[in-house]
Nucleic acid binder design. Structure first.
Lengths: 207, 207
DNA sequence: AAAAAAATCAAACGTTTGTTTAAAAGCGAG
DNA sequence: CTCGCTTTTAAACAAACGTTTGATTTTTTT
């Protein structure tokens, strides 16, 4: 990955974060990157592939860390299912930690959050290509952790986890609407929220 | 509001839900509505104002119900702060209940969820114009309910509630990505999740 | 029934979109 | 220095965008 490609990806993060996928034009991106208009198509093939490359570039190290942590936890558990809290923690902590590493990681988060809820076309590509294995694996472990509950309830809880994560990714950096002033939350708060929420849902179904 | 305007709003719900604000063109919308291309500008002024009109048309009855429920609950509480669960319930139940009323309410939900995370320009208009009073009021009551906790923690919890709601609004109707199969959750599950989550966050801060 | 107002229509408006082209410039290796 | 390859560049591309126009039809008012 050469210098121009890096510049394009970093500019793309900012522009996609600020304007969304459709809202950011290739000219916006190349102007910010200081490159020619044609550079996106030359180096990545299309605007869409630039977006995907950007996502992969940032998310793959995070996902690798997640898989490593899961592996280690499963090893230690020695065959018994993990706690829900452990799974939640493994999914959230590497993500939130990456906020504080690097300058515009928050832009990337927002760009990914927006892009994934905005575009239907490559959302499915992304699921298959980048997130599919992660989702499948953790959904499976969730099923083991909640094995005495109906699959539908597991799905709901897993979905709640998903929206909480994507909710964090959507948040703006600055308090810009005058009503909600939000900083990126501590990983601990988010983990407590999701875990406590799931436990409450589970507790309510068996009276 | 005449017949053409209704047709346009309903078509807009579907198109904005499927393609997002920028992704759906005025020609997509008017074709689906069976009207002329110029009808959007004639009746609403612009594509953007059509979007806002669509949001208002659906969200205002919901918000009115929320305010009425809050009023009633405050009356009954007689000056004492409400439980967090009550506030969560008042915000969530009218929204989720509206899913089952009318044919394409789910499209509206998704359209609003997408539009609000996609567009920055009228997101702020929407906050000021449609959601501002609601957010302000419930944030204030949240503060009363959690009065022995720092404001920052209240903000975080309020934000968690917000992302959970907007997470529900983002969900697709069909299981379309092969990994996550999500139906719109019961109001009860969502309420339990958010309330339990907030309680867990609060509990963790005082050991 | 005539006049006034409102709504619809096909057509065209000027921009902006993502992408392509073909020539120019940069560059490492022999 | 030159060759072969990669990269950058300015220009142009067709297509799609939101919007406007002016004539025509429909509806309402008098």
């Amino acid at each position: 990955m050469n210098k121009t490609q890096i510049k394009l990806i970093e500019a793309a993060e900012r522009e996609f974060a600020d304007r969304g996928f459709h809202g950011a034009s290739v000219r916006d991106i190349t102007t910010r990157a200081g490159t020619n208009v044609a550079s996106i198509n030359y180096h990545f093939g299309s605007k869409e592939e630039l977006f995907l490359a950007m996502i992969r570039h940032r998310i793959e190290p995070i996902n690798q860390e997640r898989f490593e942590l899961l592996e280690a936890a499963l090893q230690e558990a020695n065959g018994t299912p993990l706690e829900v809290r452990s799974l939640v923690e493994i999914l959230i902590r590497p993500l939130v930690n990456s906020f504080s590493r690097g300058t515009n990681r928050k832009s990337f988060m927002r760009a990914m959050g927006r892009g994934m809820s905005e575009e239907t076309q490559f959302t499915s590509i992304l699921y298959k290509d980048v997130l599919g294995k992660l989702i499948k694996t953790f959904r499976y472990e969730f099923g083991r952790s909640m094995s005495d509950h109906p699959e539908e309830l597991v799905d709901h809880c897993f979905a709640f986890l998903g929206s909480s994560i994507s909710g964090v990714m959507h948040h703006r950096q600055k308090a810009d609407n005058g009503h909600m002033r939000i900083n990126f939350p501590d990983a601990d708060h988010l983990i407590n929220f999701v875990t406590g929420g799931i436990e409450a849902v589970v507790a309510a179904t068996r009276p």
